[in-house]
Design a protein around this nucleic acid. Structure first.
Length: 985
DNA sequence: ATCCTCCCCTAC
DNA sequence: TAAGGTAGGGGAGGAT
């Protein structure tokens, strides 16, 4: 799957890039399908200055042959490749590992690792002719020979290094081959398609699309790296505990003596941010381009960016007009409007600029601008490609550098964070900006990239300071200054949270800078923006920021979204993609070890007036966006449940697949996997057993004549577990009951077409889901007996729901039952006499045996009451999922009661639901047994817990309520709980 | 009042 | 050609 490619190193094992062992590194290498050999395994190089081959070419060579390319020199960098270094530079370097680039070339040519000494630039041994010598022992040379043989491109094979590793590598390489082969199978379509087959992946219909897209998406990388570093800070903090920071001592001795301390007790928050991050990382290997206007983008620039093929069904003029209209009249986004206005010329590249250098910015180029537009502003703009690995590498170096001094870090993104400095500078006894300068220099030397930092008394002011500091500088918003006066001239859009939309809205009201807002009444702001936004805006305009630094951030949602390359021609292509995306989002969910209770599907649909094809290649064009969500009954991380809900939501949108331009799946209301486990013990037991049972019963037959309630619950479960089955409309409404789409309305038109009794059932179900989840109400809720239920009951009409008053009229009920009995068992003789006599006597509570007796079909009526009670009920439908009916219900109850100190709310609800099903199914004697057993378990619980007593009474109460509704009588129960502590009055 | 859904906005 | 994601905060308006 796409999983590997999407994984940025923040998988469940955490930041493997940073910590991973050698072995893991080799694993990763072996699974790379582009790998030609492992020639340079364990060898790392750093390229200093101009070389031939160039740094980029050397990087390619190293990657393809299993080596490591360092973008900056590290202590463990094995070789430094250079051609000529200035004396000044060399003087302070360890020259024993500076070699010529020719070494790499010769190694590849000879297909073995050569002795590097002849290639040293700064020793006596320097020669131009490499000696063909193996530097190491016999074993190695043998290995090298084998390697040389195995380096043929058609049959790449790992060197037989350490035996185990060799085997593992081999397996992994085989796996990599296997993983790529299905791609080729899709080629079976037509022979005429051959021309397109050779092309790269285009639309989301291609099974490899998702992986390709995420591999190349800058926004995806920005987002996942950001999330990754938030988690990284958490991990570092947890791993660190209360240990000291040794680096502080080192710094203290370096800076000691020359510092006069800040005597004030000011609060210091630092905001640190890399300067035009992507560009800086890209320039590490091309220092000769520093000072030029540079942009990072997918477009290769030059003529490729000014003569772009145009799709016949696209219409740039029309699309531009539409976009411009939206941006100018609805969204007021000047930048985007401008981008469309001047960037949409025919044949100009619509590739976006992810990051541009300050020299490019000076010409008016901005991040996010189209390349075509940027080239008009600056024809000599140089474009460089993305280096996602490099961004991660540098980001780790940045975070690790800061983390040496403190872990009071709030990660904002991969290149930006807030750091609480108050305690740190007090501990170091240094001036705050001295520390910042030292830190920035360390970051620069470790990453090879410049950064800027601002310091203020809160996050807002620190950020403002950074704006002043950029590029490559630092700035302190001194604690003593008049903050109000300082903020007043600041344009509002410089405040965090104020974007183009809000800027425009405020400008309409005559508010442009912080000073304007400072003097505006709260009422006016609130009417403009709403309560909360008004408050924060006003506070920010005064330089006040109450937001604390959040060091350990908890994720609240997970999502996966693709608004590029979505072009389906039919529903099945769409469904296939939805399944892939569901799997993707499920992986992300399990990666963070959480479960979700809400699923939201987001779609982008081509706007009615928009051209069929977007101007931007595979772009979404002008679209309308729609969201729809479904609440799950329980938190889940089951891919099948997620998928079935996603498919259902898509079906509800009822959109033509060919008009879709974007799809996203969001999971929210997350809970911890372990919390869920604790919280829902019973349900987990049920589900576990139903899984097991599913495997055991191979063929699950669908009942021709669905039994009412239980049957529906069961069908729902099947949809959840088996979304592979196509969903037809007729099953959809039935399925929309217990588990899923509680909050989605049923189409009234569909509803109108249903037969009366079925419609009533649907309405009842909907009503049921709108009931509050609170246990009291749910358990005690009055339920109208349904037609369908009645049909299966022996009584022609079930008793109407009884109020408390009528329920307490035993003689009426006894008469009723007697009447039914006599009708049914005419001439039944002695037995029925006994039964009726019994009923008269007990009046209020009926023994389960009686229920058993009267609910048996006529043919089975036996002569003797005892036998009747013992007679087995007809087997429940094979699909019935109520495990309270299973033979091991006692074990399950015992597990529940004994493992939990206090009963869970959700477990009690589950229990009530399952017992209610039993009531409706008339499993009276089982109910009797369950209640008896449960009562005993609670009584004999090691520790007397009133919560359990109350739980039992509540369950008992609910059961009796249901009995009263469906049978007209309460059940005689064997035991009850009495406790002086919690007994109700 | 408080919750829910469906947005919109913002930031990187 | 091109890779227009992701997460969080919050408002409007309706349901309870």
């Amino acid at each position: 799957m796409a999983g590997d490619e999407i994984n940025n190193g923040f998988g469940e094992c955490g930041y493997f890039e940073a910590k991973k062992s050698k072995l893991e590194e080799q694993f990763a290498a072996a699974s790379d399908p582009f790998r030609k050999s492992n020639l340079f395994q364990g060898i790392s190089i750093f390229v200093n200055g101009l070389t031939d081959p160039s740094a980029n070419e050397l990087k390619q060579i190293m990657m393809v042959h299993g080596g490591t390319f360092h973008h900056y020199e590290r202590s463990h960098t094995k070789f430094i490749i250079a051609s000529n270094l200035p004396d000044v530079k060399v003087r302070n370097m360890n020259t024993s590992k500076i070699i010529s680039a020719q070494y790499i070339v010769d190694c590849v040519e000879n297909k073995r690792v050569l002795d590097y000494k002849p290639y040293l630039l700064y020793t006596n041994q320097k020669t131009t002719q490499p000696r063909l010598v193996f530097g190491k022992g016999k074993n190695t040379s043998r290995a090298n020979e084998t390697m040389a043989v195995s380096m043929s491109e058609t049959a790449p094979e790992p060197p037989p290094v350490e035996n185990d590793l060799g085997k593992i590598l081999k397996v992994l390489q085989l796996a990599a081959v296997a993983a790529t082969s299905p791609k080729k199978e899709t080629a079976d379509k037509t022979v005429a398609d051959v021309s397109t087959l050779s092309h790269s992946v285009r639309t989301a219909v291609d099974p490899a699309f998702l992986g390709e897209f995420y591999k190349n998406s800058r926004l995806h990388h920005i987002a996942t790296l950001g999330a990754g570093f938030k988690q990284y800070v958490c991990e570092l903090r947890q791993a660190h505990g209360n240990q000291p920071f040794p680096k502080r001592n080192e710094l203290r001795s370096v800076l000691s003596g020359k510092q006069e301390m800040n005597a004030d007790s000011a609060h210091y928050v630092m905001h640190i941010d890399m300067d035009c991050f992507f560009v800086s990382v890209g320039l590490r290997s091309h220092p000769e381009w520093r000072g030029l206007p540079i942009a990072v983008t997918h477009s290769k620039g030059g003529s490729a960016a000014t003569d772009v093929p145009v799709h016949p069904q696209s219409d740039r003029q029309a699309e531009r007009a539409l976009f411009a209209d939206r941006f100018e009249h609805q969204l007021h986004d000047n930048f985007r409007a401008d981008k469309v206005r001047t960037g949409f010329e025919k044949k100009m590249s619509l590739s976006e600029i992810a990051s541009c250098s300050y020299e490019a910015r000076a010409k008016g180029i901005r991040n996010g601008m189209f390349v075509g537009q940027a080239l008009k502003l600056c024809p000599e703009l140089k474009t460089i490609p993305y280096d996602f690995e490099g961004y991660k590498e540098v980001a780790f170096a940045l975070y690790d550098t800061v983390a040496q001094y403190t872990l009071n870090i709030e990660a904002v993104s991969c290149d930006e964070m807030f750091v609480e400095l108050t305690d740190l500078v007090a501990d170091l006894q240094v001036d705050v900006m001295t520390f910042v300068a030292h830190l920035r220099e360390e970051v620069r030397s470790k990453t090879g990239c410049p950064c800027s930092a601002g310091v203020g008394s809160n996050k807002l002011l620190a950020r403002m300071a950074t704006k002043k500091a950029k590029p490559n500088g630092q700035f302190l918003l001194a604690p003593g200054i008049d903050v109000l006066a300082y903020m007043a001239p600041t344009p509002l859009e410089e405040l965090p949270g104020v974007g183009s939309s809000m800027r425009h809205k405020l400008a309409q009201a005559g508010l442009r800078n912080c000073g304007d807002v400072q003097g505006t009444s709260r009422e006016k702001l609130e009417s403009l923006l709403g309560k909360k936004l008004a408050l924060t805006l006003q506070q920010h305009s005064l330089g006040i920021d109450t937001r604390p630094l959040v060091y350990e951030q908890q994720r609240k949602s997970v999502s996966a979204e693709v608004n590029y390359g979505i072009r389906f021609s039919n529903a099945s292509e769409c469904e296939t993609f939805l399944r892939q995306l569901s799997a993707e989002v499920k992986t992300r969910l399990t990666d963070i070890k959480r479960k979700a209770k809400s699923v939201t599907l987001k779609v982008m649909v081509r706007a009615a007036e928009a051209p069929i094809e977007a101007s931007k290649f595979m772009g979404h064009g002008v679209c309308d966006t729609l969201n729809k969500s479904a609440m799950l009954q329980h938190p889940t991380d089951d891919v099948n449940i997620i998928t079935s809900n996603v498919l259902k939501l898509m079906k509800e949108f009822d959109l033509p697949p060919h008009e879709l331009r974007g799809i996203g799946i969001h999971l929210s209301r997350l809970s911890d996997v372990n919390e869920v486990k604790k919280e829902n013990v019973l349900l987990q037991m049920f589900e576990k057993m139903s899984e097991k049972r599913k495997i055991e019963t191979t063929a699950v037959e669908v009942q021709e004549e669905p039994q009412p309630e239980l049957e529906q619950a069961e069908q729902q479960q099947q949809v959840d577990l088996e979304p592979q089955q196509p969903l037809d409309m007729s099953s959809e409404w039935k399925n929309s009951t217990n588990t899923s789409i509680k909050n989605t309305a049923v189409d009234p038109e569909v509803l109108a077409q249903l037969p009366e009794d079925i419609r009533q059932e649907v309405l009842d179900n909907m009503e049921e889901h709108l009931q509050p989840k609170h246990s009291e109400q749910r358990g005690r809720k009055r339920r109208k007996p349904k037609n369908a239920v009645r049909r299966s009951l022996p009584f022609p009409s079930a008793p109407a729901p009884l109020s408390k008053v009528s329920a307490n009229k035993p003689s009426n009920r006894a008469q009723h039952l007697r009447h039914e009995l006599s009708k049914r068992y005419r001439g039944g003789g002695q037995t029925d006499e006994i039964v009726m006599d019994y009923i008269d006597k007990v009046s209020n509570h009926v023994h389960p045996a009686i229920f058993e007796y009267i609910s048996r079909p006529e043919v089975e009526v036996s002569q003797n009451l005892q036998g009747a009670a013992a007679a087995p009920r007809p087997q429940p439908p094979a699909t019935l999922q109520n495990y309270l009916l299973g033979s091991n219900y006692k074990t399950m109850l015992a597990d529940w009661v004994s493992n939990q100190r206090y009963p869970n709310h959700t477990d009690i609800i589950t229990m009530n639901e399952k017992l209610a099903e039993l009531v409706k199914g008339r499993y009276s004697s089982r109910i009797y047994d369950i209640m008896k057993h449960l009562c005993r378990l609670i009584k004999h619980k090691h520790e007397d817990v009133c919560e359990w007593h109350m739980a039992f009474r509540f369950i008992e109460d609910t059961v009796q309520h249901h009995m009263m509704e469906f049978e007209g009588y309460q059940m005689m129960l064997a035991e009850s709980i009495s406790c002086v502590m919690c007994e109700p009055m």
